[in-house]
Design a protein around this nucleic acid. Sequence first.
DNA 1: AATTTGACCAGTA
DNA 2: CTACTGGCCAAAT
Length: 111
Amino acid sequence: MPVRPGKSDPTERFEKIWQVVRRIPYGRVSTYGRVARLAGLPGRSRFVGLALRQTPVGLSLPWHRVINASGRISLPKFRGHYAEQKTRLIAEGILFRNEKVNLLRYGWPNV
DNA sequence: AATTTGACCAGTA
DNA sequence: CTACTGGCCAAAT
């Protein structure tokens, strides 16, 4: 029993985010803002980034399908998991053009 | 308890 | 295209 079920466990607040991310289809991407809205937390895109950073190992989540509203990967280019995220997206057939993804083509949901 | 941080975003210049 | 701003607000420090 890791944690007292109930309030002060922040992990619970992240679960709604994770549920939405899990629904992003293979070969498509979503944005922090869209995920926040679909999770019932409109305007709290930063919270999505936090939730993804806190993703437990073992929970296989398509975190790489979440990019920013500009179509770019929101990670430092020469640090972190930038390369891994890009590789995973390309492996799903998503094309990059100057480090950017066309959200009109790959964005989910459409609006 | 107070302050800073942040895998964001839309607007503006 | 880049750079900066104000808004956002829970989590982390």
